[in-house]
Simulated assay, not measured.
Amino acid sequence: MSLQENPGLGGSAHAAFVDLPVLESIAHNLYFLVVQAILWNQTHGKQARPIFLALIERYPDPKSLSKASLEELTELLRPLGLHNIRASRCIALGICWDKDPPTPGRQHRRKGYPRASLAASEDDAYEIGHLPGVGPYALDSFRIFHRDEMRGLAKDWLGTGATGEDFEPEWKRVVPLDKELRAYLKWRWLKEGFVWNEENGNLTAADEGFLAVAARPRDER
């Protein structure tokens, strides 16, 4: 299956990455989302992007990744550094996913998530928490961009198609450490009329100046 045929990228893969932030462009494909998180860890997105495209072209699903040659995958990931670790982690991810795929209604806790400075609750368990290589960045990305869709609560991360009166998009409960996810949520909250505190998630009403920023296209801010 080519990238152009894969519905998770919504058409041309390269066009999707140019037109939208990476995570938005792959939000409907959980496998892509998790692999992206592993590759982006400790790496600039610009450097990781072509490697990610090559990887999902060669290994378009967990089963194919589980059968990948460690030597070949290590060579593919070499430009990113930590290639031996990343390759082993990706194959372990594929094996675990193939045997025990993420399933709605079955959550797993992840030690250290959410971070200690945030109030934890008995609900802090997630459908991808058991997968190798899944850390805070992957969990935050999953919660922001895919969890509502996976649980059948909405058609996307913005709440499209949600019917419950008390529905609140999962992204509104995420307080990430990653600077790009923080920037995204700041912008998303401004669209809702609030200034979001990236340290604790607290909200204050946005004034006209902030709202004007939110109204501009993201590449002009």
Rank of each mutant, 00 (worst) to 15 (best):
H44S: 14
H44L: 12
G45K: 06
G45A: 11
G45E: 08
Q47W: 00
A48P: 09
P50A: 05
P50N: 07
I51F: 02
I51Q: 04
I51V: 15
F52R: 02
F52A: 01
A54C: 02
L55H: 04
I56C: 07
I56D: 07
E57K: 15
Y59D: 11
P60G: 11
P62G: 02
K63W: 12
K63S: 05
S66H: 06
S66A: 15
S66I: 02
K67N: 08
A68P: 04
A68Y: 03
S69L: 05
L70R: 06
L70H: 09
E71V: 14
E71M: 07
E71S: 12
E71W: 08
E72R: 15
E72N: 15
T74Y: 00
L77T: 03
P79E: 05
G81R: 04
L82T: 01
H83D: 14
H83N: 15
A87K: 02
A87Y: 02
S88E: 15
S88L: 08
I91Q: 01
I91F: 06
I91N: 01
A92F: 02
L93S: 01
I95F: 00
I95Y: 00
I95M: 06
C96D: 13
W97N: 03
P101N: 08
P102G: 05
T103W: 08
P104S: 07
P104F: 12
G105N: 05
G105V: 11
R106M: 13
Q107D: 09
H108M: 01
R109D: 00
K111M: 09
K111C: 03
Y113N: 07
A116T: 11
S117V: 10
S117Q: 11
L118P: 13
L118V: 12
L118D: 14
A119L: 14
A119P: 02
S121E: 09
S121V: 04
E122L: 12
E122S: 14
E122P: 01
D123Y: 10
D124Q: 13
D124N: 15
A125G: 13
A125L: 05
E127W: 00
I128L: 09
G129N: 08
G129Q: 10
G129I: 11
L131Q: 11
L131F: 06
L131H: 03
P132H: 09
G135K: 13
G135L: 08
Y137F: 14
Y137E: 11
L139G: 02
D140M: 08
S141E: 03
S141A: 15
F142K: 02
F145P: 07
H146R: 04
E149L: 13
M150I: 05
G152Y: 04
G152V: 07
G152N: 05
L153F: 10
A154E: 09
L158H: 12
A162S: 15
T163M: 10
F167L: 05
F167G: 08
E168P: 00
